[in-house]
């Protein structure tokens, strides 16, 4: 299993979880896995929507104790 980079965006209002994910993906390699932690419930829909639109691979979305975990693999 590839090593997974955790992006702890809990409590991030600006740039916020999705923008932080987009930024971190730029500095990763194809095949790298990332997991975003967000306390913004909008992330549960916004981030998977963007992942599908751009074509990365969504691995998992789950909520634990008020924190959304969205995992993906960079595909390009």
């Amino acid at each position: 299993m590839a090593e997974r980079t955790i992006i702890d965006a809990r409590g991030s209002f600006c740039p916020g979880p999705l923008m932080e994910l987009i930024a971190r993906l730029k500095f990763g390699a194809v095949g790298d896995e990332f997991e975003v932690l967000s306390t913004d419930k909008g992330s549960a829909s916004d981030i998977p929507e963007w992942i599908h639109k751009v074509g990365h691979e969504l691995l998992d979305t789950r909520e634990e104790a008020g924190v959304w975990h969205i995992a993906l693999r960079k595909t390009k």
Binding site: F13, C14, P15, G16, L18, M19, I22, G42, D46, E49, W50
Partner: peptide, 10 residues
Amino acid sequence: YPIGRVHSLE
């Protein structure tokens, strides 16, 4: 703008 609204701060 990169995300789904015109600024990161809602």
